[in-house]
């Protein structure tokens, strides 16, 4: 008995280490999945209010830059408004039916209060929450392209899983073609992403622009994402791969827009049905 106690006291430090680290590791590895990530990244009110104050201060130093990009964005929008074809049929006030999709997307502006890029699992915190209509699974963009997807929101804050996250995927296609692939991030440079699963016969060249495909309920179609810089065409694979330089500068995010997709619930319901059908087939 005395021997056991002696051993225990001798290795107490090591035993405590193993205990504590096992607890930590189990929390760490159990929460790596997309949806569980939301649980651990609860938009904590105390830390977020501090982060918001810091970002208030930092915002002043960025004002010139923000103004520039807002002006540029406005110019782009003006161009689109004045060049758009006039609708020949007057729109009915009661916009149900196929015309409802005209207002399918709504945008909620928000400011980034905390953002990281140096980790391989990055999250962005914004100062809008359920009170402003921000909910889980909404896509987030800014004027340069997609930013991420909301994973959790509280009353006044929300957590976005940044595109710079190992488990982030965007369904993307090459501009002016209908072939799409999957855009993901390898966890290294915050400027570069990989476009995977492009069919081999598609002629993709260096310098082609990559846009969102509109196949997911997160992002509308035709948002610019980046430019292809390198093309990998290994003969043994069925699909080709390309390296993409992103338009978005993730280390300098100030304002973002949360996309409210009116059709999202319907699309997700359909996706669920498809999933269960696939499951049945497997069995």
């Amino acid at each position: 008995m005395n021997n056991i106690l002696f051993l225990l006291s001798k290795y107490a430090a090591f035993i405590v280490l193993v205990l504590l680290e096992v607890i930590n590791l189990s929390i760490l590895f159990n929460n790596n999945e997309f949806h569980q990530a939301a649980y651990i990244n609860q938009a904590n009110h105390f830390t977020n209010s501090i982060q918001e104050k810091i970002s208030n201060t930092k915002a002043y130093f960025n004002l010139t830059h923000v103004n520039d990009s807002v002006t540029q964005f406005n110019a782009e929008l003006l161009k689109q408004i004045y060049n758009a074809p006039k609708p020949s049929i007057p729109l009915p006030h009661d916009s149900t039916g196929p015309l409802a999709s005209l207002n399918q997307y709504q945008f909620i502006p928000a400011r980034v209060i905390n953002n990281s890029t140096s980790s391989s699992r990055n999250y962005i915190y914004i100062n809008r929450g359920t009170a402003d209509g921000v909910e889980k699974d909404m896509g987030v963009i800014n004027e340069n392209g997609p930013v991420g997807v909301v994973v959790n929101s509280t009353e006044h804050y929300a957590v976005i899983m940044s595109f710079l996250h190992k488990q982030s995927f965007i369904s993307a296609k090459v501009k002016n073609t209908n072939y799409f692939g999957e855009l993901s991030w390898d966890g290294k440079s915050n400027k570069i992403a990989d476009l995977k699963e492009i069919p081999k016969h598609v002629k993709v060249r260096k310098g082609d622009t990559i846009i969102t495909s509109g196949h997911s309920s997160y992002f509308p179609e035709n948002i610019d994402i980046g430019i292809i810089t390198k093309f990998v065409n290994e003969s043994q694979n069925r699909y080709a791969e390309a390296q993409v330089i992103l338009f978005n500068d993730f280390s300098n995010l100030n304002y973002v827009y949360v996309i409210k997709n009116a059709e999202q619930k319907n699309i997700q319901a359909l996706e669920k049905i498809e999933e269960s059908l696939n499951k049945d087939q497997d069995e």
Partner: peptide, 22 residues
């Protein structure tokens, strides 16, 4: 970890460092 939004990462490393400090 609360401030950085990391998943218990700093906690893990800090405990390990404390163990190896002696």
């Amino acid at each position: 970890d609360l401030f950085q939004g990391t998943l218990r990462l700093n906690m893990f490393c800090a405990v390990f460092l404390a163990f190896s400090r002696p």
